[in-house]
Design a binder for these strands. Structure first.
Length: 453
RNA sequence: GGGGUGGUAGUUAAGUCGGUUAUAACGCCGGCCUGUCACGCCGGAGGCCGCGGGUUCGAGUCCCGUCCACCCCGCCA
């Protein structure tokens, strides 16, 4: 073989293998893996998170993607570089057990190289407490937010939640789909669409993959999609974004919304279990909440109003819940079940989208919300699956069915009774970690006034 | 869209009834320290008090305007 074989890892025949030159990168060791390299010379790469130089000893806490390690050096090797915190460096050293080090081991520095110096006078560092840095300053220097323990954990947990969502659905024969975010019209009724220029005509940013999910059901029976959706709603609250990441699923052959709710109990419980396993419970540094949701109750909308009346004297609610009611319902659920979560079933049909399946004849909908830790994180339900019913629902709202012909045609293909749901990923992340504002769980939040960074 | 709170050092904040040189903590810079990792000790730099106008002998402080941020509500995931 023309290139060095290392550990016999490559099984690709030589003629088809990519050229594999030996480079420092291929030998680079992550700080988390050092225990396997005691006594060897290793290459580490990362950032200077903490630096202390005395006359006789230099201590560098080096941070990389896997964690941190303390590097000990002769100041004669480090002083000439003028190192400072957040510099990007490359370190050659020998790891060894050391009782005086916090981790029980550290690295003796052999050589260090500055890859890129950090500027002086940065507004905060990877050691800053994020609570002491304003949200705007954090956004202006987003990668530094991620380099802190807290900021990094928020987005690692978010990634784990979404990975867990995918895995739980794949285990249940769901297929992931990827639908377009550029659409010709709305699904939910439409004043909250972002209009975009599309060559000689107008198009819109998708506010939901709802129609495409339903089409997916007609072909694949069980589908899910994760992706951004867009709402041109001029909100300015701690829980709204104009662009948010939606965890969407839709399944065929349901008998009612109860099937979808049960699926969500199972999926979220598995997702939370995954986060517990990977990060611990509580997640260190957070007021996290990762309960099993298997026993989450489902309360009828009217029942919720009744409970709010008797427990909190709420007489003001008629056809919807307000944020205070959501918090109160979760508190009531927690008192009864030990878990701060509740499904609210059977909202008034009138303010639901046209495709919503009615519940009985009393003007209620076969739809539900999941309130989790005081905040709505999901809306779901059963959808109409017969073309005639959809046409009637459209006419009932004063909409000419022909304007939805391209969509309605899919219901001529033998559409199963179906239902699904959507979870706001940033809200889920925020509620799981006990964050006060969805923006903390949003890498680059978009709201009424912000489109940068 | 409506309502509220706030903009003071790199960051987070204090600043009384309008009064002399605008504070603190952390961070930063220089020095000391052979086991530091929220180290410690000594010294230092750093400010058009968001911006514009007004009242006043005098404005960080009061008034008007403006920009920005955050919170609550409508609505939503």
């Amino acid at each position: 073989m023309p290139w060095p074989r290392r550990g016999g890892r490559s099984r690709i025949p030589p003629s088809r293998a990519p050229p594999r030159h030996r480079s420092p990168m291929t030998d680079r060791v992550f700080t988390a893996d050092l225990a396997a390299h005691f006594g060897q010379e290793v290459l580490l790469r990362g950032w200077v998170q903490r630096l202390r130089e005395t006359k006789s000893t230099t201590f560098i806490v080096l941070k990389d993607a896997s964690g941190t390690v303390q590097v000990v050096a002769d100041p004669q090797k480090t002083k000439p570089l003028g190192l400072k915190t957040e510099d990007c460096v490359e370190v050659v050293g020998r790891p060894r057990a050391e009782a005086r080090a916090r981790q029980g081991y550290e690295v003796d520095l052999v050589d260090v190289r500055l890859l890129a110096a950090a500027a002086e006078g940065l507004p905060f560092t990877s050691m800053s407490k994020l609570d002491d840095v304003g949200p705007e300053v954090q956004l202006d220097y987003r990668p530094m937010t991620l380099r802190t323990d807290r900021g990094g954990t928020v987005f690692r947990v978010q990634a784990a939640l979404i990975e867990g969502f995918r895995a739980a659905l794949r285990r249940r024969r769901f297929t992931e789909i990827f639908s377009s975010k550029i659409v010709g019209g709305g699904t939910e009724g439409g004043t909250n669409l972002f209009e975009i220029k599309y060559f000689e005509r107008s198009a819109y940013l998708a506010q939901s993959p709802q129609f495409y999910k339903e089409h997916g059901v007609a072909g694949l029976e069980r589908v899910f999609e994760t992706g951004h959706v867009y709402r041109a709603e001029p909100h300015a609250t701690s829980r709204h974004l104009t662009e948010y990441y939606s965890l969407d699923l839709e399944m065929g052959f349901v008998d009612g919304p109860e099937d979808v709710m049960q699926l969500e109990r199972e999926v979220l419980s598995e997702v939370f279990e995954e986060v517990r396993t990977r990060f611990g419970d509580p997640v260190p540094g957070f007021d996290s909440y990762l309960p099993s949701l298997m026993e989450v109750p489902a309360w009828e909308f009217g029942e919720c109003l009744e409970r709010l009346r008797s427990a909190h004297g709420r007489e003001d609610l008629v056809d919807d819940l307000d944020p205070e009611a959501e918090r109160q319902l979760c508190a009531l659920a927690e008192k009864e079940t030990g878990v701060s979560a509740v499904f609210v079933v059977g909202f008034p049909l009138a303010n639901r989208p046209f495709y919503t399946h009615p519940r009985g004849a009393a003007g209620a909908a076969q739809s539900f919300d999941l309130l989790f830790r005081g905040l709505e994180i999901t809306t779901g339900g059963q959808r109409l699956h017969r073309r005639a019913d959809l046409e009637e629902a459209l006419r009932g709202r004063g909409i000419e069915p022909s304007s939805f012909e391209a969509h309605l045609r899919m219901f001529d293909l033998g559409m199963p009774p179906h239902g699904g749901l959507a979870i706001g990923a940033e809200r889920l992340t925020g509620q799981v970690l006990g964050l006060k504002n969805v923006r903390e769980a949003t890498l680059y939040p978009r709201d009424r006034h912000r489109v940068e960074p």
